[in-house]
Design a binder for these strands. Structure first.
Lengths: 166, 166
DNA sequence: TATGAAATGTTATAATATAACAAAATTAAC
DNA sequence: GTTAATTTTGTTATATTATAACATTTCATA
């Protein structure tokens, strides 16, 4: 099992997360000759500002205006960056929240699932090949040809259990 | 494993599906002293008109106008009925599609997953206790207290594989 | 540096969902 | 049974999420 739950749920040097994510993104985009433009990079950085999924308009709000003109970045621009980052596997969409989160393992060809804390919103990504193959098997047994999956688990992260969340 | 995939993906007497669903709904609501009003029943029937998840505004469009006044049912009314039906476990929300589908096994206290055909939209519901317990275990291993899950699998149903979908 | 392709800017609008309050219907209390 | 309280529905407006359409700019490269 692969997971970033330790980072997602506990205090840590988050700047390193961000820097590592940006570094990985640069390398991956370079390899694929995909253009990680300043706007795309800023959107990625904004998403990586926390381990909580961010809605598209939260990203819009958190983006700093253009240095030259002082104008705010508009929704379509952000959505286009999101689309790019999704295609490159650098972020994931959390459907149950209409929100986006950075992928800690981009490039890995894994099918992952998400552990979303309903109290603090922090979200970890896990992969478990055994579960994946069981889902594939179960689908197959009904004659269904599985192509992709979306697994979102809601509950309480370790920190919020301590905090006495109901 | 429990599933309605045979009904979801193959031609059958669908009126029986609908009638059975309405019957179960009535019994369950009766037991819980929940009021299955005419509007709520109509929304449920509209959702059960197919085995494909229906968007809220598709439901609005498919609802017949009020018999007395001839006026169309408005979105908030439909959303309130949806909310009620979700609470009673009579329908499910498919987050990846922003759409709603009838539950073939209401009352069962199961955690299910959905097999969504990307070609025809038909969607089956499956439960597999083994997968559930593995997810629970995996979450636990990271200290996460799992409370609910959302598993949506996309692919091709048996019929659409035959049809030569790419 | 001209040229085409890709990315971004800009405005408008589609699609999904809910807030707020009024009216009607139903249930409970007397 | 009639009244009061509660729940449901009607109605209007608006919030939120997402995309269409076209103009402009930037970038790669020929």
């Amino acid at each position: 099992m692969l997971t970033n739950s330790r980072l997602a749920y506990h205090t840590h040097d988050h700047k390193r997360c961000i820097n590592a994510a940006l570094q990985r993104a640069k390398v991956l985009c370079d390899e694929k000759h995909a253009r990680l433009t300043p706007i795309r990079e800023t959107v990625l950085k904004t998403i990586w500002a926390s381990h909580q999924p961010l809605g598209a308009y939260e990203i819009v709000d958190n983006m700093t205006p253009k240095a030259q003109t002082g104008k705010r970045i508009q929704a379509p621009t952000v959505y286009r960056a999101i689309e790019f980052l999704l295609e490159q596997g650098l972020i994931h969409r959390i459907a149950s929240l209409n929100a986006y989160i950075g992928c800690p393992f981009p490039g890995n060809n894994h099918k992952d699932f998400f552990l979303i804390c309903r109290a603090c919103g922090s979200t970890a990504e896990c992969s478990n090949e055994q579960i994946n193959s069981m889902m594939l098997q179960t689908a197959e047994r009904t004659g269904f040809k599985m192509e992709s999956q979306m697994v979102e688990i809601s509950g309480l992260c370790p920190e919020c259990q301590q905090g006495g969340q109901p």
